[in-house]
Amino acid sequence: MLSELFMGRVYKALNHKGYRSEDFSIIHYDASSKDVKQSVVLTIKYRYKEEFFISSRVLNSTFEYIKISPGRIMQFDVKSQVGAQEFLNTISDWIETLDNYFSNDPISRNLLKTQEKIDQLERRLNETLGDLEDEFRDDEIHLLKEQLNNIEKELTEKLNQQIQDQEVLQTKVEELHRDLQILRNQVGPLNKKNWLLSYYTKAYLWNQDNPSFLPKSLLHIGHKFLPENIQNTISTEFIDSAVDSLLPQPDEEKSKTKQK
């Protein structure tokens, strides 16, 4: 079995980054056999989420293998043939990974939710527009870029009305300018369907932090540039419903207001 001295060092290593050894369950047992002597299995589990663990086999005072969950990049990390001090360092590194996981988990969930909603919009546009590959004509490119310039002025003015903090305002205005510049640059290189997807994706992101930021009239941009037969198939009401499904709902807006 492992010595009390070494197990004391294990418990000490678990007291890291605000975590305590009591947050973990530790099991170690003799796995020696006729063929394999002085073999011990040592498993450390995070008590509140047991799929997070370190599992190891100690053979003749050397850690023959260590399996770690979660890993830094992969779901599992694996080490082999390491000494006692490296094992203790592995515990500290693992707790750092746990701390990062719990700190970033809400961010990861929000990013996944955003990705799912954008995927949903892309599916709806693809279902409706089908194999539309129409490109913008030169006159349409000129007109659409003018409209984007007007949108930037309108939304910049709205930001000035909504945000009092000058530093935050400057950041938001610069982000908006970059987004609109990308959209201006994409008119022409992207076909009409893909440009609309890019535009509505940015519309969703604009409204994430500023609910109801985008006037309803601006959701219809691009509709007039679709072929006439497509315009007849896709009403502006479809655009409203498709994009509305992405925008924060009233309950979400109230929740954000309360959090502020």
Rank of each mutant, 00 (worst) to 15 (best):
H177D: 14
E116A: 04
K192D: 09
I182S: 08
V173K: 03
N229P: 01
L111Q: 11
S25G: 14
D35S: 14
Y200C: 00
Q166T: 11
F87K: 04
H28Q: 09
Y48E: 14
L125R: 06
Y200Q: 01
S235I: 09
I73T: 13
Q162H: 08
E152I: 01
V173W: 00
K79G: 07
L176Q: 06
L219C: 01
L5I: 14
D134K: 07
I107C: 04
K145D: 02
S217W: 05
N110P: 09
D131Y: 08
Q249W: 05
G130L: 12
P250H: 02
T43K: 14
E135A: 10
R57W: 00
Y199W: 05
H16A: 04
I221C: 01
T43W: 00
T128C: 11
F76Q: 13
E127L: 13
L247P: 12
A31W: 03
L121C: 02
D251I: 08
S69L: 13
L176V: 07
R109V: 14
Q115H: 12
L180I: 15
K260N: 14
L246W: 04
L125E: 02
K17H: 10
W195P: 11
L246Q: 12
D119S: 09
L132V: 10
G83I: 06
V10G: 05
Q120Y: 10
L121G: 01
R124P: 00
N110Q: 15
V168L: 07
N207C: 03
F24L: 03
E252I: 03
D77S: 15
K158S: 11
L5G: 03
Y200R: 02
I107R: 13
K158N: 11
E140L: 04
Y48K: 15
D244V: 03
G188M: 02
D30F: 10
S32K: 15
R47H: 12
E51Q: 11
Y101E: 04
F52W: 10
V78Y: 14
N229E: 12
N104M: 15
F76Y: 13
R72Y: 08
